[in-house]
Design a protein around this nucleic acid. Structure first.
Length: 530
RNA sequence: GGGCCUGUAGCUUAGUCAGGUAGAGCGACGGACUCUUAAUCCGUAGGUCGCGGGUUCGAACCCCGUCAGGCCCGCCA
C-alpha cells in the first residue's frame, strides 16, 4: 500500500468539500477600512483557487466576496486627518471618503462615494486584472435590505446562549451590558451605546449623550458584533467553505465561536482553511494603518498578474510569505516562466518517476494551471532576468522584440510585460543587482584587478572601437577580434571591458548595451584607464 | 498566563498526517560553446533537518522538554 494520493493544497480542500455534498458557496470577506494590500490578495486568491479546484472536482460552486462595509471606523488611522475623529464608530458605508490629504471629501460623498467605496474600487480593478470574478455582497446593503433579519432576531432572542458560547470558547468575560446587537445611536455611531431592552424586533438603547431610542434589527438599524455577524453571514448566504487569516483561525478565535453560534441559526459551519499572513520582506506584517503596504495595483504595475497568482498557488496556505519586491520577485517570475514552459505530460509519462517526484510534478502542474489568466495562456519567450536586461539596454520596444526574435508576432501579453518591466525598472523596487550602471570615471579598485593580459588588450580594444561599426554586431566583432588578433581568449576582452566600463568582473552581454551608448563617451572612459 | 502555527543547504523550499539513513529551484563555483561571458548546455560543492532527551532495529517525521519568530484569547486578511 503506497498510501493515499498526495495533492495540491487546493485539491485537498476540494476533497474535504466534496465529502459534504454537491452544492457549495465559497466565501471571502474584507473590511475596507484602508488601502487594500497584497495580504488581502491572499484571501481572495485562496478563495478563487479553492473555487477552481471545486469546479474541477465536479462540484456546483459559487464564489462570493463580502465587503464588510457595515463595520465601523475603529480609529483615526495615520493616513487620515483628525477630522475623522467625528466619524469613529460610524459605519464605513456612511462616512465620506478621504481626499489625498486624508480629509473627509464631502463633495465625493454627496455624489454617492463612501469611505468603503473609495478603498474598494481600486481593489476591484486589481481583481479584474488577476482574473478573480466573485459575486460581490455589500454587507451594509445586506443589513439595510433585511438579509440579516432572521439571524439578528435569533441572536437577540438567544443572547444568553451566545454569551455562554463566547465566554466559554474564547475564555474572556463579557460585560454586564453586552448584547448581541450594536444599535446606531443618535449621532450615527455604534460605539459607547448601551442596550437597555429587547422587544423583538426592537432593541432599546441609551447612548453616551444620554439620548435614548430604539432600533429595528430587521431594518439594519445597527449591526451584529463581529463574532455573530460572521456566522450570521454564513447562515443567510449559505456559505459552505471560507478561507481566513490566522488571526481568525487561532483556538478561541472567531471561527471557533462562530461554528457554535451558527448552530443556533440551525445551520452548519463552513469548512475552514486558515492561511498565514504575507509580510513585506524586512519590514514585518503589512498593515493598512501603518502605511507599510504594497497595494495590489502597485504590485501589478511591476509584474504580470499570473506571477502574483503563482505566488499564492505555489505556496501552501499555512506558510508565511515574505513578499520581496526586489530580487525575490525576479526569482519568482523566472521560476514561473520555467515551470510554465515545462511539458508535464512527458514528465508524467516517465514510468521510473518516484512517487515523491511524481507528486512534485503534479503539484507544479496544478500551480501553473491555477496561475494562468484565462485570456492569455501562452508561454512567454523570455525570462524575467533577460527581459530586465533588454529593457534597460534598448529604449525602443521594437529592438527588444528583434533581440528575442519575435518581431513578426509580438503578442499583447509580451507588450504588456515589457511595459510592466519598464515601470519596475523606473521604480524604487528594482533590485540594484540587476541595474546596469555605466561608470563615469574609472574605478581604481577595478583597475587594480588588471593583469598583463588586460593591459595588453586594452589598446587593441580602443583601436578597434574607434573604427568599427557602432552597432551590436559591429561591437561584438570588434571585441572578439581584439582578442583573437593577439591570440587571447575573448574572455579577456570582456573582462577588461567590464572592469573599465562597469567596475565589475562580470556582467551582462555587452555589445547591445554599448551600442546604445555614445561611442566617444566609451572611448574616453577606456582611454582614461590606460 | 492559556492555546495555535512556523523553524530543513547562502536564499526560497519539498518531504512531517500513514517512521525506512534528506529532494529541488535560485545563487556560488568549475567547464563547454571559433560564443552577444547576467543567454544556452554540462558538471561540482554545500545540510549534526532550531536545540536536548525519549520511543524504535531505524526519527526531519511519533512523544516530552526547550529556544527563536509569528498569531489568537479587544479590533485586523
Amino acid at each position: 500500500m503506497i498510501g493515499v494520493e498526495k495533492m495540491h493544497w487546493s485539491d485537498v480542500a476540494a476533497k474535504r468539500l466534496a465529502e459534504r455534498g454537491e452544492k457549495h458557496i465559497i466565501s471571502t470577506g474584507i473590511t475596507p477600512s484602508g488601502e487594500f494590500h497584497i495580504g488581502h490578495l491572499r484571501e481572495i486568491l485562496t478563495g478563487d483557487m479553492l473555487t477552481k479546484a471545486a469546479l474541477k472536482a465536479g462540484l456546483d460552486v459559487e464564489f462570493v466576496f463580502i465587503v464588510d462595509s457595515a463595520d465601523p471606523l475603529r480609529k483615526v488611522y495615520s493616513f487620515l486627518d483628525d477630522d475623522y475623529e467625528a466619524y469613529i464608530g460610524h459605519q464605513l458605508k456612511q462616512i465620506p471618503p478621504p481626499t489625498p490629504e486624508g480629509k473627509p471629501d464631502h463633495e465625493r460623498f454627496s455624489n454617492g462615494i463612501s469611505y468603503a467605496d473609495h478603498f474598494l474600487e481600486p481593489f476591484k480593478e486589481a481583481l479584474d486584472q488577476i482574473d478573480v470574478r466573485p459575486r460581490f455582497i455589500d454587507n451594509f446593503e445586506s443589513y439595510a435590505s433585511g438579509k440579516f433579519s432572521e439571524m439578528a432576531r435569533i441572536a437577540c432572542n438567544k443572547a444568553t446562549e451566545i454569551r455562554e458560547i463566547i465566554e466559554r470558547v474564547s475564555g474572556r468575560e463579557l460585560s454586564e451590558e453586552w448584547f448581541p446587537w450594536n444599535p446606531i445611536d443618535s449621532t450615527g455611531s455604534i460605539d459607547g451605546i448601551t442596550v437597555t431592552g429587547w422587544n423583538d424586533p426592537y432593541v432599546e438603547w441609551i447612548d453616551s449623550n444620554g439620548q435614548s431610542g430604539r432600533s429595528d434589527v430587521t431594518k439594519g438599524e445597527g449591526k451584529l458584533p463581529w463574532r455573530i455577524d460572521w456566522p450570521a453571514k454564513w447562515a443567510w448566504i449559505g456559505v459552505t467553505m471560507e478561507p481566513f487569516g490566522k488571526d481568525h483561525g487561532a483556538a478561541g478565535g472567531s471561527y471557533d465561536t462562530g461554528k457554535e453560534i451558527i448552530e443556533l441559526f440551525g445551520k452548519q459551519a463552513p469548512v475552514d482553511l486558515t492561511y498565514e499572513w504575507i509580510s513585506l520582506r524586512g519590514q514585518g506584517a503589512m498593515s493598512s494603518s501603518s502605511g507599510n503596504t504594497i497595494g495590489p495595483l502597485e504590485a501589478l504595475s511591476l509584474v504580470p498578474p499570473e506571477i502574483l497568482r503563482y505566488l499564492i498557488a505555489s505556496t501552501k496556505p499555512n506558510k508565511a510569505i515574505e513578499f520581496d519586491t526586489g530580487m525575490g520577485l525576479v526569482t519568482l517570475a523566472d521560476e514561473f516562466e520555467r515551470t510554465a514552459s515545462r511539458d508535464f505530460a512527458i514528465e508524467l509519462d516517465n514510468e521510473d518517476l518516484s512517487r515523491r517526484k511524481r507528486v512534485a510534478v503534479e503539484d507544479a502542474q496544478i500551480a501553473v494551471e491555477l496561475s494562468s489568466i484565462s485570456a492569455s495562456n501562452e508561454a512567454s519567450q523570455v525570462t524575467f532576468r533577460h527581459l530586465a536586461l533588454l529593457a534597460q539596454t534598448k529604449s525602443n520596444d521594437g529592438d527588444v522584440w528583434a533581440s528575442i526574435g519575435i518581431q513578426d508576432q509580438v503578442s499583447p501579453s509580451m507588450i504588456d510585460r515589457l511595459h510592466r518591466m519598464r515601470t519596475w525598472i523606473a521604480s524604487r523596487h528594482f533590485p540594484e543587482e540587476l541595474r546596469i550602471t555605466i561608470l563615469e570615471h574609472p574605478n581604481s579598485e577595478a583597475l587594480a584587478l588588471f593583469g598583463d593580459e588586460e593591459r595588453t588588450i586594452l589598446p587593441r580594444i580602443i583601436e578597434l572601437f574607434t573604427t568599427c561599426e557602432w552597432t551590436s554586431p559591429g561591437i561584438q566583432a570588434a571585441i572578439s577580434n581584439s582578442a583573437k588578433s593577439i591570440e587571447l581568449s575573448p574572455r579577456v576582452a570582456y573582462r577588461t571591458l567590464y572592469l573599465t566600463i562597469m567596475g565589475v568582473e562580470k556582467g551582462p552581454r555587452l555589445p547591445a548595451i554599448l551600442s546604445e551608448l555614445n561611442r566617444e563617451t566609451i572611448l574616453s572612459l577606456l582611454k582614461q584607464c590606460l
